[in-house]
C-alpha cells in the first residue's frame, strides 16, 4: 500500500466511496469526539464508505461493523484517501 503523503485532506462528506480512507481528525466538542472515537472514528483509523446517500448521509465500514452516519456528522470528519 502506498500512502501518498500529500493527498489532500477532505471531509468525509466529499470523499469517494469504496476506497480506503484514513481519518485525519474530527471537529466538534470534546464529548462528540469522545463518543465517535468510542465507535472507532479517531485519527489514523481506516474506514471505507459503503454507501452514499443524499446530502452527505453515509454508511461506512469501520472496525468490522457498519455505521450509519447523518449528514451533519460526515462534514465533521476529515479524511485522506490512502
Amino acid at each position: 500500500m502506498i500512502v501518498t503523503p500529500d493527498s489532500p485532506v477532505i471531509s468525509l462528506f466529499l470523499a469517494p466511496a469504496a476506497t480506503m480512507l484514513r481519518v485525519v481528525g474530527t471537529s466538534g466538542g470534546c464529548e462528540f469526539q469522545r463518543k465517535i472515537a468510542a465507535l472507532g472514528i479517531y485519527p489514523d483509523e481506516q474506514l471505507e464508505i459503503v454507501e452514499r446517500h443524499c446530502q452527505g448521509a453515509l454508511i461506512i465500514r469501520v472496525k468490522g461493523a457498519r455505521l450509519a452516519i447523518g449528514q451533519g456528522m460526515s462534514r465533521k470528519i476529515k479524511v485522506k484517501v490512502i
Partner: peptide, 9 residues
C-alpha cells in the same frame, strides 16, 4: 443545533 447522527447497523 442537532446532535450528529451515528448508529451501528
Amino acid at each position: 443545533e442537532n446532535e450528529p447522527f451515528v448508529l451501528e447497523l
